[in-house]
């Protein structure tokens, strides 16, 4: 099993712990990630706001670079994932636009004839590797840990790609398989505001406050995300939210890959856990087979 890895700009720095833990988890499970050489920014939600042909062409350079690698792309950032999939969809839909984008790619001596599928690591881990394999490979469990899985928007919308748009279960099932106690969490696909944290802070703070409150009200000790921007919004702005709304949020927000990594026995430092702003507490790893007293 191998994939063409597209980390995206966020995972180089602000989402570094996500990048580190994805690489460690894939390595521990024997799945090969080959970096797409010299990839560029996908343009995110920003370039589509300015020009569609430019936006699609810039993103398509990455697809063109990946096409000769002979495997699906693995894109952990929800925004990159959505944009790259969208470009594939647009190319298949509109022959005129396809012609234009292929013409534009020629300026960089690139072609893109064979569509490359773009996958999210959560999809790969659960549907290609499989829950049973992960369970078997993991020497530790999280029995009793109360977790709220937060999917965000662009992982499941606009397409029904690998999970439900309203009530996705992939991350729930993964965490349950590792023994965690997944709490009911209606806000699991409620928007964190994305880049509104920069352009319209009062809106984004309000959205994140209500998501954090929902997780707390349902007894979560920790929240788990699958997107670098969601993670940053939920973790980095808790102090501001507390001040503005008189709250006492102190919720650790980790990447799902960090938890799997711990269960697989990877050193926490290699998973970037020391870079988190809110330290995860009560992360008791229980050796598999050991009974936990209630």
């Amino acid at each position: 099993m191998e994939y063409a890895y597209y980390p995206g700009c966020s995972l180089e720095y602000s989402g570094k712990p996500y990048d580190k833990s994805i690489r460690e988890v894939f390595k521990a499970l024997g799945v090969k990630l080959r970096d797409i050489k010299d990839w560029n920014c996908c343009g995110a939600t920003m370039y589509v706001s300015i020009d569609k042909i430019v936006a699609c062409s810039v993103a398509a350079r990455n697809l063109a670079l990946a096409q000769n690698m002979g495997c699906d792309i693995c894109a952990p950032c929800n925004s990159c994932y959505t944009i790259l999939r969208k470009v594939n969809r647009y190319l298949a839909y509109d022959p005129e636009m396809r012609g234009k984008i292929l013409e534009v790619l020629k300026a960089a001596n690139l072609t893109y004839d064979t569509p490359v599928d773009v996958r999210h690591p959560l999809d790969i881990l659960v549907n290609d590797v499989g829950l049973d394999t992960i369970k078997e490979a993991a020497p530790y469990r999280f029995d009793g840990l109360k977790v709220a899985p937060y999917y965000g928007c662009q992982l499941v919308r606009p397409e029904h790609h690998f999970d439900d748009v309203d009530d996705p279960m992939t991350m729930d099932n993964l965490l349950t398989a590792l023994g965690a106690d997944v709490v009911p969490f209606a806000s699991k696909v409620r928007c964190c505001g994305g880049s509104l944290m920069t352009t319209c802070e009062e809106v984004a703070l309000d959205l994140n406050n209500s998501i954090l409150k929902d997780a707390e009200d349902n007894g979560a000790e920790i929240m788990v995300t699958a997107c670098a921007l969601c993670q940053m919004n939920l973790e980095g702005y808790q102090k501001k939210i507390n001040k503005r709304y008189s709250q006492k949020h102190n919720m650790p927000i980790v990447f799902f890959s960090q938890l799997i990594g711990l269960a697989l026995g990877v050193n926490p430092k290699r998973l970037g856990l020391q870079s988190m702003l809110v330290k995860p507490k009560n992360l008791k790893l229980i050796p598999k087979g050991m009974k936990v007293e209630a």
Binding site: V54, V58, I101, A108
Partner: peptide, 10 residues
């Protein structure tokens, strides 16, 4: 290459 793509698309 990215510059060339953006310029050509424009």
């Amino acid at each position: 290459e990215v510059k060339a793509i953006i310029n050509r698309a424009k």
